[in-house]
């Protein structure tokens, strides 16, 4: 078994399925049983940049498995602020804990940590590169809500250029034989061309449109994203596109009955609040699944089988 979880690019389909199966087993387990699974084990949450839901869901996941958590939530609170190198920080913290969960703005940081440390390393986001635990929880949510992943029609809306969540999920869905993608983005935020290339020409269909209505009518999953202000070097450009797509309850009247609207959160205003009360809204259950998937990941990488 892999020591670390660093990048979705490393995982074969059967390995992804193992995480999904593990999460199913975790969810089926009563809370009072789950809390007996990791007593005495310590997770180090090393967050070198701000994060709310990823950090809190990891911490919650570990506490609810009976383990405990040490860590920091900003690099200013660490010796890195005194000039310590990242690798030295890793070697220090590894002697205090059993598993390292790392979020860092530098791309490739988790890979480096995994090479340096004998402990399992979980990538909780490395810059614009990878965020595999988000992708796994997205896949888990899709399979749980729609009963399968294979063959679904999935639409992505918003920032398809910079969103690592989108990039990573598209790659993973391709492994699950999802062949039909609808991409809704303003011209400046289109999915980079190379994501549409595959070794099997013609197998995957990417339908690009600027009209969200097309996606709503045709798809099984509508994956919304926030236009990320922090990714724009020029804020004038951000202002031009920030409100390109706002999904409202009324727009969903044409949707398939089983359509699920997902979003990695936080949302700004791309999903109107009136969508929250429709049967289509899947984003808060998706966030809850984050704890379950992260429990599955912690258990798997700490060698617990269910």
């Amino acid at each position: 078994m892999r020591k670390d979880l660093i990048s979705m690019e490393d995982l074969e389909k059967n390995e992804i399925q193992e995480y999904l199966t593990m999460a199913e087993k975790v969810e089926a387990m009563p809370l009072e049983e789950r809390v007996k699974l990791l007593p005495g084990r310590i997770m180090a949450a090393m967050f070198f940049e701000p994060s709310t839901r990823t950090r809190l869901s990891f911490e919650s996941a570990m506490h609810r498995l009976g383990g405990s958590v040490i860590g920091f939530a900003a690099k200013d609170a660490t010796s890195v602020a005194k000039g310590e190198s990242f690798t030295d920080t890793i070697h220090t913290v590894e002697s205090y804990s059993d598993i390292l969960v790392i979020r860092h703005p530098g791309e490739g940081t988790a890979r480096l940590a995994a090479q340096e440390s004998y402990l399992p390393v979980i990538n909780a986001g490395d810059g614009a590169n990878q965020h595999p635990t988000q992708t796994l929880l997205d896949l888990y949510t899709i399979r749980k809500d729609l009963g399968k992943i294979e063959g679904l029609k999935v639409a992505f809306v918003g920032d398809l250029k910079y969103s690592r969540t989108v990039h990573s999920l598209i790659r993973a869905l391709m492994k699950f034989n999802v062949t039909d993608f609808t991409l809704v983005a303003p011209e400046t935020l289109r999915l980079p061309e190379y994501f549409m290339h595959s070794d099997e020409p013609g197998r995957f269909r990417f339908h690009e449109t600027e009209r969200i209505e097309v996606a709503i009518q045709e798809c099984d999953v509508l994956y919304m994203t926030r236009i990320q202000r922090e990714r724009f070097p020029d804020l004038v450009e951000y202002e031009k596109v920030k409100d390109s797509y706002v999904l409202t309850a009324e727009m969903l009247s044409e949707a398939k009955d089983h359509l699920r609207v997902l979003h990695p959160l936080p949302r700004v205003n791309e999903i109107a609040y009136d969508v929250d009360n429709t049967k289509f809204a899947g984003y808060f259950p998706q966030a809850r699944n984050g704890v379950i998937m992260r429990q599955a990941i912690l258990l798997k990488h700490l060698g617990v089988t269910l």
């Binding site: 190198s85 990242f86 690798t87 860092h104 791309e107 490739g108 480096l112």
Partner: peptide, 13 residues
């Protein structure tokens, strides 16, 4: 060439 790559900040890697 990616300025945000960790090999550009941790030069010993």
């Amino acid at each position: 060439k990616n300025p945000n790559c960790i090999t550009n900040t941790e030069k010993h890697v």
